[in-house]
Design a protein around this nucleic acid. Sequence first.
DNA 1: CCTTGAGCCCGTAGTCACTACAGCCCGCAA
DNA 2: TTGCGGGCTGTAGTGACTACGGGCTCAAGG
Lengths: 139, 139
Amino acid sequence: MNRIKDARGFTIGRLSKMTGVNIETIRYYERIGVMQAPDRTANGYRQFTHNDLKRLSFVKKCRELGFSLEEIRTMLVMVDSENLSCGEIHDMTTGHLAAVEQRIRRLRKLKGVLKKMADQCTQGDVPDCPVIDALFETT
Amino acid sequence: MNRIKDARGFTIGRLSKMTGVNIETIRYYERIGVMQAPDRTANGYRQFTHNDLKRLSFVKKCRELGFSLEEIRTMLVMVDSENLSCGEIHDMTTGHLAAVEQRIRRLRKLKGVLKKMADQCTQGDVPDCPVIDALFETT
DNA sequence: CCTTGAGCCCGTAGTCACTACAGCCCGCAA
DNA sequence: TTGCGGGCTGTAGTGACTACGGGCTCAAGG
C-alpha cells in the first residue's frame, strides 16, 4: 500500500517532514520557480514525486552550504538542461569557498575586538563602561 | 568661518561623508528611532550636531561589530538614560561573542565540505560533476 | 536674470529568504 | 454531525538597508 501511495506522490506535509523544509518554504520555492509546480489531486492538493524529493533535498543541502537561491537556480538550470559543465560548477564552488573564507577572516577579527572589549569590563553596576567608552571614542 | 558652520551643524551629506554612513541609511535610522530627529533649517534641511556625529559613529562601529540594531537600541537607551550598567553591557558583548564564535565554527565546517567537493571536480566540460552528484545523493 | 546641477526633501517599493497569518475548503474519525 | 488536522490562496511582516520618483532649494556660471 505504501508503495502505491508513494507512486502517487506525497502531500506537501509529507515532503516537508521528509526533507525538513518548512511547508511555507516549499510553496515559496514553487512561487519563485526553484521548484516546479507539481501536479494536483482532484481536490487541489499538491502531489509531489520522488523527483521533487531529490530536487528539494538538493536545494536544502545547497542552502545549508550557504549558496544563495540565485546560485542554486543556476545549478538547477544546468541540471535541468543536462548541459552540465563541471568546470562551471567548480568555479562557483571555489568562488563561494573564497567568500566563506573571507567571512571567517572578518569574524575572527571581530571576535578579537569583542573579546578585548569584554575583558576590560569591570562588570560592575557602575555607570562607567569601557566598552561604551571604546565605542564612543572618536578614533 | 568653518567653526561657525560647525556650530550650526552639518547637513546630512556632510554627516554621511564624515561617518561613511549612507544618506538613506541615516534617514532610515531616524525613521526607526535609532537617531533622534534633528532640528531643521528654515528650508527644512536636517541640521546635525556634533552629538549626532558621535552617536552615528557609535552605531556604525556597533554594526561593524555585528550587533543588531535592536541590540544597539538597547545600548543607546542605557546611554541616554545615563543608567548604564557595565555588567549588562558585558553580558551583551560576551553573548554576542559566543554567537560570533558559533558562526565561525559553522563556517569552518562548511568550508571543509566545499573544499572537498571542489577538489573532487575534474573541471572538465563533461556533463558529469562530483559536486552535483554529492549534492544529489540521498544520504 | 535664467539655467544648470548638486544636494536636500518625502514617501514608497524592492531586496533576500523566508515566516506568519487570515480565511477558506476537504476528508476522516468519533 | 461535529471537530480536527491537514491542505489551499493571497498578503503582509521580518532586518537592515537601498533605490527610485518627483519635487524643492541654493550657489555658480553664462
